[in-house]
């Protein structure tokens, strides 16, 4: 009897701990949604900021984020996909394979601000790109590369060995086998990984702080060597660097809501897609 009560107490405290997390996150999301929605208007989304962000819209920041994310994904996806194919289909064991895996683990753990330092040292200064879309995209691309490689490799590993054997036994070359009877079934999973990468790239602030982001730039970029505003950096600036942060609070909430909407949208899409494909393909 006593132990039964004890057990109930334990289960309930574990449950309470879990739902406390849910509560906090739920409160965070609700707070931002409720206080952010009044700010959202056509002018806010499509207008240029005025008076260093106190009025007007966030259009250049949205566009800047889109450019940065596009740039990052264009570079990271092919590279990540090819890496995953090599690791999963070509590299067996061996030293190179071990070093590559160590490198991926290391990359995955590098703090985002250190990526910023690296981007500053290599792209901005050494290559002379200056603070630019190009430098920022490259930095973000390298940051999300491990995410894309790891999830792409998982997708490749999920394709049963039997399909590869069947194809090879019919006299297909290695590449024909990969291209015709492995990749088609792994691609959905690979795209899912990339979408997660997009979500991460869109929300990161620290790397672009040092490589591209403009404090206040109420115009659109003309080339990849231009600076841009970006949503996460804009939020940071409004919240901490603005002379009158209290007054621009609605703008902060509005920006946070748009940013969360973009990131959560990509993440949810990835989660739903992944569950869909997991259910659909059963071997």
């Amino acid at each position: 009897m006593r132990s039964e009560l004890q057990g109930k107490i334990i289960v309930w405290s574990i449950r309470a701990t879990t739902y406390l997390i849910v509560g906090i996150v739920g409160y965070l999301l609700l707070d931002i949604i409720v206080k952010g929605i009044p700010t959202i208007s056509w002018e806010f989304l499509s207008g240029f900021p005025r008076r260093s962000g106190a009025e007007g819209g966030i259009y250049p920041a949205i566009i800047g984020t889109v450019y940065l994310v596009l740039g990052a994904i264009i570079m990271a996806f092919p590279l990540g996909m090819a890496s995953a194919i090599y690791l999963s289909e070509y590299a067996m064991q061996g030293r190179l394979n071990r070093y590559i895996r160590l490198a991926i683990i290391t990359l995955a753990g590098v703090p985002s601000i250190v990526f910023g330092l690296f981007g500053l040292g290599l792209f901005v200064l050494f290559f002379g790109f200056g603070a630019s879309i190009l430098a920022g995209s490259l930095t973000l691309a390298f940051m999300i590369l491990p995410t894309i490689i790891v999830s792409s490799e998982e997708a490749l590993q999920a394709v049963p060995m039997g399909l590869r054997e069947a194809s090879l036994a019919l006299g297909a070359t290695k590449w024909q086998t990969v291209y015709k009877s492995v990749l088609p079934y792994a691609l959905p999973g690979m795209f899912t990984g990339s979408i997660l990468g997009i979500g991460r790239a869109a929300g990161e602030t620290a790397p672009i702080l040092l490589t591209v982001a403009a404090f206040f730039l109420p115009r659109l970029p003309k080339s990849i060597f231009d600076q841009v505003m970006a949503l996460p950096y804009h939020l940071y600036v409004l919240a901490t660097q603005h002379p009158d942060t209290e007054k621009v609070l609605p703008m902060q909430y509005g920006t946070a809501l748009v940013l969360i909407f973009i990131v959560v949208f990509f993440n949810l899409t990835a989660i739903i897609l992944r569950n869909h494909f997991r259910k659909k393909i059963q071997w």
């Binding site: 965070l28 997660l196 929300g203 602030t205 919240a239 969360i260 949810l268």
Partner: peptide, 24 residues
């Protein structure tokens, strides 16, 4: 419900969490 929720939490940008910390 919990698993996707945790994944969403993982995806919230740190600047948004920082903002929440600052104002709330």
């Amino acid at each position: 419900f919990l698993k996707p929720f945790i994944e969403i939490l993982a995806g919230i940008p740190s600047v948004v969490i920082g903002f929440f910390g600052l104002v709330v």
